[in-house]
């Protein structure tokens, strides 16, 4: 509140300064002999700079953007399930934000642990949790997607001889654009006490899809899906083995940056 008041105060100062300047200009205009050609040129330059700046920052239509709609997220498997349902916001532990081609998904309280929740498979204890994120994406007519960049960041704690990982599979526009799979692997050869892991991947969209988008007669909407899977694997003779992915209280951050280009 005080900052807002401070802004208002500064704004008033601004207005006051402008008023003084205007008055000075009027006085000058009534005494043309006092104006040299040098000051006149200076004023013209100032006026031109002001006009250019004003033009640069005047309201202007925004570029066309992707629109994200009908978002839901749901979980399956072991561990704490993920959930996003606009009808029950208090129970959501998936938070998403989109700005055109940029999508941010934050999975809070989404984790698996060994050996608390585990099944025996092939002589090993395994646990996994899957989080599926669905949305409808609309791309404006006359535009196509050029590149996609994915980022996955999380914290991990695990004992030695426990392996696991997080994978991300995604499709944009149903199955037309399979996203590169992201694999964040927790290797069994070392313990991780509070590791912060970060994986990036960028891919270029194939030409046939660009052509089909650019030849569409109207804007196109498709279902889009991201599937995150968290897996932990431990060896049975070591009951104390533990994997906590992510670190208790740490979140999984997924980011998608898609650059939109105008069709040629």
């Amino acid at each position: 509140m005080s900052l807002l008041m401070n802004s208002t105060f500064n704004s008033r100062n601004n207005h006051s300064n402008q008023t003084k300047h205007t008055n000075f200009g009027k006085v000058s205009a009534m005494q043309p002999s006092a104006l040299t050609s040098r000051t006149l040129a200076s004023k013209i330059r100032s006026l031109a700079a002001f006009l250019l700046l004003t033009l640069a920052f005047t309201p202007h239509a925004h570029a066309e953007e992707l629109i994200w709609n009908n978002v839901v997220a749901y979980g399956s498997g072991d561990g704490s399930p993920c959930r996003f349902n606009p009808q029950t916001p208090s129970q959501n532990n998936v938070i998403w934000t989109a700005a055109g081609g940029d999508l941010s998904i934050i999975l809070t309280n989404w984790s698996v642990s060994l050996p608390k929740i585990a099944r025996l498979a092939g002589g090993k204890l395994t646990t996994s949790s899957i989080c599926t994120f669905d949305a409808t994406v609309t791309i404006p007519r006359g535009y196509y997607l050029k590149t996609l960049s994915q980022t996955l960041v999380t914290g991990v704690m695990k004992d030695k001889l426990v392996s696991g990982g997080i994978t991300s599979n995604g499709f944009l526009f149903q199955t037309l654009i399979p996203l590169n799979q992201i694999n964040m692997i927790f290797r069994p050869d070392q313990a991780l006490s509070n590791a912060l892991l970060n994986v990036n991947n960028t891919q270029i969209i194939t030409q046939p899809f660009i052509q089909s988008l650019c030849q569409a007669s109207r804007q196109v909407s498709f279902t889009t899906k991201f599937r995150f899977q968290l897996v932990g694997v431990g060896i049975r003779p070591f009951p104390q083995l533990g994997l906590q992915a992510n670190v208790d209280g740490s979140d999984v951050h997924f980011g998608l940056d898609s650059s939109l280009e105008r069709c040629p």
């Binding site: 239509a61 925004h62 953007e65 934000t97």
Partner: peptide, 11 residues
């Protein structure tokens, strides 16, 4: 191209 960075929504 400028359409991607000028006047477009940012996060």
């Amino acid at each position: 191209i400028s359409a991607n960075s000028c006047g477009s929504r940012q996060m």
